[in-house]
């Protein structure tokens, strides 16, 4: 079946709410899992490596790193949600099959899952921001402006992950996506080090990918530097990825689940 753009209604809300309800029941362990690892990176690399590096772009290394970690953690959280958790709901628990017998459609489910991935990124970024603030590596209250950007990162990577889930035959498939997509993005998006030192090809390539621009917006918000003049345009990049992936995911899930 050839399909136009997915239909967008408020029916994503019960899908999103169901996931929130499950998360609230299991939140304790999940939360520690979500921010424990990024926090370790922040502390170990920030202080450990930071001692050798000193300043980066005029910032103490841990201050530079904190904003990268916030973005990377949002990307990871949403990717896990869109891969492992969504796959479980689709193929193992058949939760989506139950939903599809009700007035909910695949478009509603996919949109609900994408917005949930964004929400999950948002939730897991809060403790990291808090700790960063306690460590004194956040400049001022304008760091709260990071939250909507984190949500956008989550929506973008949640949508991309769902495309992969729509093609996955088992959980094993996801490791390729992490190795081939997520980890390289992690390394070339200015999370750990500025891209200035990279070869031109990598630098320009990274500009076409969804994470680097988000880092460029989050970093000034957390460090109190001026925002890039093209901030809104920068944020369009992950949003465009999200829209494209949303559309592709609905096409693929239709093919997989209904035909």
């Amino acid at each position: 079946m050839s399909r136009a753009f997915p239909s967008i209604t408020l029916r994503w809300l019960p899908v999103w709410r169901r996931n929130l309800r499950v998360w609230r029941k299991l939140s304790g362990p999940a939360l520690i899992g979500n921010f424990g690892e990024p926090l370790l990176y922040l502390l170990a690399l920030g202080y450990g490596l930071g001692g050798f590096i000193g300043e980066v772009n005029g910032l103490p290394y841990i201050v530079f790193l904190a904003s990268g970690i916030v973005c990377a953690s949002a990307m990871n959280t949403a990717s896990f949600e869109g891969l492992y958790s969504a796959y479980t709901r689709m193929a193992v628990q058949n939760t989506w099959g139950g939903m599809l017998a009700t007035p909910l459609s695949i478009d509603d489910i996919v949109l609900g899952e994408i917005l949930w991935a964004g929400t999950k990124s948002l939730i897991s970024s809060v403790p990291i921001l808090l700790v960063a603030a306690l460590l004194g590596v956040v400049h001022d209250i304008s760091a709260l402006g990071v939250l909507p950007v984190v949500f956008i990162i989550g929506v973008c990577f949640g949508a991309m992950a769902l495309v992969v889930t729509a093609l996955a035959k088992s959980y094993d498939f996801f490791i390729y996506y992490f190795t081939l997509v997520i980890t390289p993005l992690f390394l070339v998006s200015g999370v750990f080090f500025p891209l200035d030192g990279m070869p031109d090809a990598v630098r320009i390539g990274a500009q076409l990918l969804p994470l680097a621009h988000a880092v460029d917006v989050v970093r000034p918000l957390m460090t109190g530097q001026p925002l890039p003049s093209l901030t809104l345009l920068y944020l369009m990049v992950p949003l465009l990825y999200a829209a494209g992936a949303f559309w592709l995911a609905t096409v693929l899930f239709h093919r997989r689940l209904i035909s």
Binding site: P14, R21, K25, Q93, G97, G98, A101, T102, P103
Partner: peptide, 27 residues
């Protein structure tokens, strides 16, 4: 109403939550 061949109850929910969550799909 559908009773599928394979159970697809929500394993993380109680009996009551299964019913109320499913109800939410119907608004």
């Amino acid at each position: 109403g559908v009773v599928p061949q394979q159970d697809n109850l929500d394993p993380d929910f109680t009996v009551m939550e299964n019913l109320s969550t499913y109800a939410s799909y119907f608004g």
